[in-house]
């Protein structure tokens, strides 16, 4: 399966920018003790991440017809969010405690693992990532 596609790359770049901006904005809001600001940042971040994933994911499916049940996008999102969670903690931004990032990493990691099992199961119905019944349509 061609796992690394142009659209996945574009999503990764977009998600990286959004996550850095979100973490920075969250850092400022927490620094100002603004609960509403923190909540607003989180909601906007969630919405934009969802739209970015939807946009590039749909294009990826239309252009490459890769049947991966969204696992590649989920994996990239996990790496970015958890990775930047640790990075921002160590550079001193007031976003999340180390314990909070680790708990998120473990619980989300379990979800990601379950998604991976589904992904492997679905891969059995494919040839090199393409759904068997769609290859010669």
């Amino acid at each position: 399966m061609k796992a690394l596609t142009l659209r996945l790359g574009q999503f990764t770049l977009g998600a990286l920018c959004l996550t850095v901006v979100f973490r920075y904005a969250l850092n400022l809001c927490i620094g100002m003790n603004s609960v509403i600001g923190s909540l607003l940042c989180s909601v906007v971040y969630f919405g934009l991440m969802f739209l970015t994933g939807w946009y590039f994911g749909s294009k990826d499916v239309a252009e490459n017809e890769i049947h991966d049940v969204g696992f590649r996008y989920h994996f990239v999102t996990y790496i970015l969010c958890i990775g930047l969670g640790y990075v921002t903690h160590y550079i001193g931004w007031h976003c999340e405690s180390l314990k909070s990032v680790t708990i998120t990493a473990i619980s989300w990691g379990i979800g990601l693992f379950i998604h991976f099992i589904f992904f492997l199961f679905e891969q059995k119905k494919t040839i090199k990532g393409y759904a068997r019944d769609e290859i010669f349509q």
């Binding site: 061609k2 252009e63 490459n64 017809e65 040839i127 090199k128 990532g129 393409y130 290859i135």
Partner: peptide, 8 residues
């Protein structure tokens, strides 16, 4: 053709 190319 892109799909066939990926499938070699």
């Amino acid at each position: 053709l892109r799909k066939f190319q990926n499938l070699e």
